[in-house]
């Protein structure tokens, strides 16, 4: 009886300890069970996964900010072959689009939506907007003198194609201008 009383807390502590260690390792983004590569987080708003490690390659599927991906292969330092955790797709992406830090999703996404639903009633109308959108909305309310600048960003800079030439356009522009086809610095 006395022996059982001593063993019970010991076993419980060991089980709890093992569970905590397992959770901590997973949170740290190390190699996970199943033998796959390391987990990384998408740190750009959105980016296509490409069929091959080349900017002009066809897109396979998009990934978005905060999404977790497993790195399967690498081509030099600049291009990584990854697979999003949620599905079976895989594709190439510039390494600069990923971070080893597990980003806290303040932006849109499942977690954000979940947070929004839990928020105060007055915040419910904002569901679907990103957290930072809301911070900006309130900042703009406090600074009406900046509205013209914000409106220009929203209506022109963020949406018009002249501000966002495609990779194909840039390739043609480089070629027509006698610039190197394969610039050395980036991917």
């Amino acid at each position: 009886m006395k022996r059982r009383r001593l063993l019970a807390p010991a076993v419980l502590a060991m089980v709890l300890g093992a569970m905590s260690l397992s959770l901590a390792a997973d949170k740290a983004g190390k190699k996970t069970k199943g033998g796959g590569g390391k987990l990384y987080t998408v740190q750009v708003r959105q980016h296509p996964l490409l069929e091959s490690p080349f900017l002009l390659a066809p897109a396979v599927a998009p990934v978005v900010y905060g999404q977790r991906v497993r790195v399967l292969d690498r081509r030099g330092r600049d291009w990584w072959l990854v697979a999003p955790l949620e599905d079976g797709t895989r594709g190439w992406i510039p390494a600069a689009a990923l971070t080893s830090v597990e980003l806290v999703l303040k932006a849109s996404g499942k977690q954000q939506l979940k947070a929004l639903k839990k928020a105060q009633k007055k915040e419910m109308a904002l569901a679907g907007r990103s957290f930072q959108d809301e911070v900006e909305r309130r900042y703009r309310e406090k600074h009406p003198d900046l509205e013209r600048g914000f409106a220009f960003l929203d209506q022109h800079v963020e949406v018009e194609p002249i501000y966002q030439p495609t990779a194909q356009e840039i390739a043609r522009f480089r070629s027509a201008g006698g610039l190197s086809e394969d610039p050395g610095g980036g991917p």
Partner: peptide
């Protein structure tokens, strides 16, 4: 595209 950091958030 030739720079060390060709990708940013947006």
């Amino acid at each position: 595209l030739a720079s060390p950091k060709p990708v940013t958030y947006n």
